[in-house]
């Protein structure tokens, strides 16, 4: 039962993506919507990304300092470990999980409301490919803007660690700065950016899928929004495992 339901949903999702990825009716309209979606889904997410990253960077630095008390470990390990946590997992995976909540629920509820208020039917009656018109700009906006958010997150996360070292003195700021530069592997930055592209696609497409297929009223829109966040979070974690295996090993 669960298996057939899952397979049926997967099939529906594939058909939905097939309808979504098409040549836009009018490039001018598409570009206008794309820019608007970048502003709404991407630029508006910058403050939350910065705030969360600064705090997590600071917490990471404190935790590393508390857990690297062995005299055999150099002090700069705090900066080095904080950097690795932020570059490898936090700024891509964890940040995308947070964005799945913020952006995913926004997309699912917006499209879901359009469905229950017959706005999507109105588009269809006019002869517009509603999936392409509504979803494609969101998907492209998310995929193209997520690297910017990840870079913001990486830099502000590292800044958070630096600030806590300056404010509380858990570690000498110069030692922290040395640590975040020590044994730097550039590929880790690319790894985080590549992962985030997949996650952005998952967030936008899954949230749009659940919103697009709402039937009923406001209650169902809320349920679709929850489903979208839960499913995209699980898919992000699953994709994280696969991408880590593929990209790092």
């Amino acid at each position: 039962m669960l298996l057939t339901e899952s397979l049926s949903t997967l099939g529906k999702f594939a058909l939905f993506i097939k309808r979504t990825i098409a040549i836009p009716e009018k490039w001018g309209v598409f570009f206008k919507r794309y820019v608007a979606e970048i502003m709404k889904l991407g630029v508006d997410s910058i403050p939350v990304v910065i705030v969360i990253s600064i705090f997590i960077g600071a917490v990471c630095a404190i935790q590393m300092q508390l857990n690297t008390t062995s005299p055999l470990m150099p002090r700069y390990t705090v900066g080095l470990a904080t950097r690795e946590v932020i570059l490898l997992e936090f700024s891509s995976s964890i940040m995308c999980l947070i964005l799945a909540g913020k952006v995913g629920s926004n997309i699912a509820s917006e499209i879901g409301t359009m469905r229950v208020t017959e706005q999507i039917d109105a588009l269809e009656i006019m002869g517009v490919n509603s999936a392409n018109y509504l979803v494609m700009p969101k998907m492209l906006a998310m995929v193209s803007f997520i690297p910017v958010l990840v870079i913001f997150s990486m830099s502000t996360g590292l800044l958070g660690g630096y600030l806590i070292s300056v404010i509380t003195g858990v570690i000498q700021p110069s030692t922290y700065v040395y640590g975040i530069q020590a044994m730097f592997v550039e590929w880790y930055v690319w790894y985080g950016l590549i992962k985030s592209l997949f996650f952005a696609f998952l967030i936008a497409s899954i949230a749009s899928f659940y919103g697009y297929h709402v039937s009923g009223g406001a209650l169902e829109v809320g349920k679709a929004s929850t489903k979208a966040v839960v499913t995209s979070s699980i898919m992000i974690l699953l994709a994280d495992v696969i991408l880590t295996k593929v990209l790092l090993q």
Binding site: T117, E118, Q119, D121, A122, E124, I125, M126, G127
Partner: peptide
């Protein structure tokens, strides 16, 4: 559909 106009029950305005 380009020859069709439709007025929905709830207006369905954007």
């Amino acid at each position: 559909r380009k020859e069709i106009g439709m007025l929905f029950q709830g207006s369905a305005l954007f």
